[in-house]
Nucleic acid binder design. Structure first.
Lengths: 332, 332
DNA sequence: CCCAGTAATGTAAGCGCTTACATCTTCATT
DNA sequence: AATGAAGATGTAAGCGCTTACATTACTGGG
């Protein structure tokens, strides 16, 4: 073996008395290698602790088996759960995860998407990176022309883009129905961002009202900061100065927390339903009833999809919608 | 240009009427290129949308500017915050983040550490992946022989391993002091895992007791499941059946949540101090006083360290300890 | 025992870049 | 205008792998 620091395929070939092609075949699990040869090569590999250089392999193959993840905010509980699930699933399929956090800026999303493509990843998964209403999704469409793109909880209908999502519109629609059935007529709706998911939920809220013959009161549909004290102050103020409400629907658990605090302080008891069913729902006092939008399942579906796509199977659905599920606790 | 799908450096060279070496120099920002030539080359690059192939570059350079992250659990709030901060900081320095989640298994930690090395990352950062008492850290030491290893909130003293940590022992020591000063003598200590950090805190708790002339009561030092209902049940039981306690210190905010719930239900009012100062502390009712162990700062320090290490600077300290800070809210 | 046919292995040409070294310009000195 | 030195550019040899194609080693049927 030469005195380079790490052995290369030539060293292995030499020591095993074969050619590099044979070593490569052993490495790639090709079947056209005699069993005795394979054993001999494997022995040398074990003995030297050789591992193939991924860059060289990447250069030859055009891929390093990496999947790029574009996530708005990993520190968000919901996304963190998604990343965690995805990592495990990807690794199981032999892919590494290249993680990019975009924040909310569309410019950054586009830029990072570009970086990911430059890295020649095998696929791109978007987690929470889609899409305010005003967004243009050209970067996604472009990316999809080169590599499969999977969107978790977002929807972009375009060839090469595959979406797994939870029917949050329906979930919110149902929430309104439940509250209506229990006699509520003036539901407060709190949201912080009009992402794709945010719009779905808002839409569900409004549609349900219409279908129930109520015009949604715009004064009860409030956009607020994603921040406990703000929401708390907001709700406290509403309790004192109106407009009056007799139930609260929040687009995110974190908002509900602020709501609950304000309600508790004022001694007001109205139902509250959160969204995401994160750990926060269990932390709240009283414990928060919340919609479970199935991160883990979404991610598992995404992983399955990905495998299908990379095997170029043609039976991969371009859209997959899961049902959400209301988890009842103490606030409704 | 040939009819390959992506242009390569030869295409650019040809169209710009220079050699590939010059293109490469332009790309790498070398200064030995005449301004007019650079302009011409850049123009062609823009025009064609050429981006250098990262595998080829990696092969030549021996690096793809990637940093491997080994994290026990990204879905944990504390780690998620760390990952988020690190990603931003790494990207700023031009590194991509290769994320591995190990879980608690030492076998997996070792295995994944190996994978990371095989990928020829430029550095490895451990987030929460160190170290139960019984762990052997040979994999870390081996890795450090090849590539800088940075440990966030862990300590392995070994050449090539750099640690940034928060003085959690001192923080817990101080907690005991504060409670002692307010007259508490029977403090309940709850923890879930004896990671490095876990051991530090426990140590601080015990040492403080000794220094204050109290023998820590082992019956008040309890290991529990990291799970709200368990803790709640545990504490509820203790309230009824003893042993008696007059304050609670928890090693993690999530444990404190269970504590607070049990206390509230039983109408018992004793101080509680959590640890991590995560969002959970703000969610709790009453809001939880908690020790802030400075994730963001730790990560920033790690990033700075990393830059120093990759520039082979010799002034990089091998250990950096930050002070924790108690954030007072309603439970103490 | 020969030969076609197949299985196993080897040869060598990429993949797209970096960079040491060679070559050619430029330009200030004399 | 001749002469270097310094600056700009080109040449070509890797980096370590994959793989099409060529070659050699086997196999059983005639």
């Amino acid at each position: 073996m030469s005195e380079r620091n790490t052995p290369n395929i030539y060293d292995i070939a030499e020591r095993a008395g074969v050619s590099i092609a044979t070593v490569s075949r052993v490495l790639s699990g090709s079947d056209k290698v005699r069993e005795t040869t394979r054993k001999r090569v494997m022995a040398v590999i074990e003995e030297t602790g050789y591992t193939p250089n991924p860059f060289a392999r990447g250069l030859g193959l055009g891929s390093m088996k990496m999947v790029g993840i574009l996530c708005t905010d990993v520190s968000d509980l919901y996304y963190a759960a998604a990343i965690s699930a995805l990592e495990r699933l990807l690794r199981r399929s032999g892919f590494d995860m290249l993680l990019y956090c975009t924040g909310d800026s569309l410019t950054d999303k586009k830029r990072y998407m570009g970086f990911l493509l430059e890295k020649h990843v095998d696929a791109i998964i978007l987690v929470g990176s889609a899409f305010k209403e005003q967004d243009d999704n050209t970067h996604i469409e472009n990316a999809a022309a080169n590599v499969p793109v999977i969107i978790i909880n977002g929807l972009v209908e375009c060839p090469g883009v595959y979406c797994v999502l939870c029917d949050e519109k329906q979930a919110m629609y149902d929430n309104v129905g439940y509250l209506y059935a229990s006699g509520r007529r003036r539901m407060l709706y709190l949201y912080d961002a009009l992402t794709f998911s945010g719009m779905q939920k808002l839409d569900g809220f409004k549609t349900a009202h219409c279908d129930l013959g109520m015009a949604p009161d715009e004064a009860l549909i409030i956009r607020c900061k994603r921040d406990i004290p703000s929401v708390r102050a907001l709700v406290a103020d509403m309790i004192c100065h109106g407009p009056a409400f007799d139930a609260v629907l929040a687009a995110e658990d974190i908002l509900s927390i602020g709501v609950c605090k304000a309600l508790a302080e004022a001694g007001v008891d109205v139902p509250v339903i959160g969204f995401n069913n994160s750990i926060l729902a269990q932390c709240a006092t009283p414990e928060l009833t919340s919609v479970d939008n199935r991160v883990a399942k979404l991610c598992a579906a995404a992983a399955t999809m990905l495998e299908g796509l990379l095997e170029k199977r043609s039976d991969v659905p371009s859209k997959l919608i899961l049902e959400a599920k209301l988890v009842r606790r103490s606030t409704f």
